[in-house]
């Protein structure tokens, strides 16, 4: 599999470590009420979809960026990749 790295171009997936579902970006607030339940769901439960799946790949043997990759889990076709940082910032609209 080749992952289209937004900064480095197409890179072999072997350079990356798979981190799992992109929902891991949405870390719950540990101080909020119901945090134990929220962290159980965050840590242990997965949608585990068959089909288009957003997931995190860490470029461990590259520039050490974490990418948000869109991939079809039934065919292994990679549909796109962005920096996870950019994805989070564009979602929150927050530059900090």
């Amino acid at each position: 599999m080749l992952i289209p790295h937004p900064l480095l171009g197409p890179r072999d997936a072997q350079e990356f470590t798979y981190l799992g579902d992109a929902k891991l970006l949405d870390r719950p607030d540990g101080m909020a009420p119901g945090a134990a339940e929220a962290f159980f769901e965050y840590l242990y439960l997965r949608d585990n979809r068959a089909g288009v799946h957003e997931e995190l790949w860490f470029h461990e043997q590259g520039d050490r960026a974490i990418l948000l990759v869109t991939r079809d889990t039934t065919t292994h076709e990679i549909l796109g990749a962005v920096l996870a940082r950019d994805a989070v910032l564009s979602r929150t609209g927050d530059g900090t």
Binding site: G20, D21, E41, Y44, L45, R46, D47, N48, R49, A50, T73
Partner: peptide, 18 residues
């Protein structure tokens, strides 16, 4: 292999990745 898909039909999320 397909536990998440089948249990998903019952509205349950599983501690499983395929």
């Amino acid at each position: 292999g397909n536990t998440s898909r089948v249990m998903g039909m019952a509205g349950l999320r599983m501690p499983i990745e395929s």
